[in-house]
């Protein structure tokens, strides 16, 4: 309990710091989402390191999400977008910025293989051009709603 409060205090300070000094905050990648569901083999790769995904784990732009043969993974991003993956899937979150006050709205990802269930959030509602998923066979622009994608190697 006190640990949690401590954590909240830190988060508050962090958020305050971001508002006061946006320049210095740019060095630390801020979490833009988190892992909300994990089944079987599911992994997060960031800066060359790959670890088993855990519920609650933070997601930053640049991470690669992947699942194994029996794996599945669900994540929620800051604007309320929901992504979930079936087995043998791999997606890189290339760019994510949800800052309507600064007119910056971008969700760019690459689905290299597997299956993706995407439910768009505020990002697509505010800008129908903001969400796009690249695949080896072409780009998929998502204007909104719920979209299912399958990429076969």
């Amino acid at each position: 309990m006190s640990c949690l409060n401590n954590y909240m205090l830190r988060v508050f300070s962090l958020v305050a710091a971001v508002w006061i000094a946006p320049a210095s905050a740019e060095n630390l990648p801020e979490p833009v989402g988190h892992v909300a569901r994990v089944e079987g083999a599911a992994y997060i790769s960031s800066r060359g390191y790959t670890n088993a995904a855990k519920v609650g784990q933070a997601i930053v732009p640049g991470v690669a999400l992947s699942t194994g043969a029996e794996g599945a993974l669900g994540v929620i991003l800051g604007d309320g977008s929901v992504l979930s993956f079936g087995p043998h899937s791999e997606l890189t979150l290339d760019d994510y910025r949800f800052a309507p006050a600064a007119d910056e709205l971008r969700l760019r990802a690459t689905l290299n293989r597997g299956t993706l269930n995407l439910i768009t959030g505020d990002m697509a509602r505010l800008d129908p051009q903001a969400v796009a998923v690249e695949t080896p066979e072409g780009r998929v622009g998502v204007r909104g709603g719920q979209v299912l994608m399958k990429v076969t190697p």
């Binding site: 622009g141 204007r143 909104g144 709603g145 719920q146 994608m149």
Partner: peptide
């Protein structure tokens, strides 16, 4: 069965949709 494809599962009352191709 093998081709990569996308489907619209829910059009969110006409607000949803997908754009494909270089020019969408």
């Amino acid at each position: 069965a093998q081709h990569s494809y996308v489907m619209l599962a829910d059009d969110a009352n006409g607000n949803g949709g997908v754009m494909l191709g270089d020019e969408g």
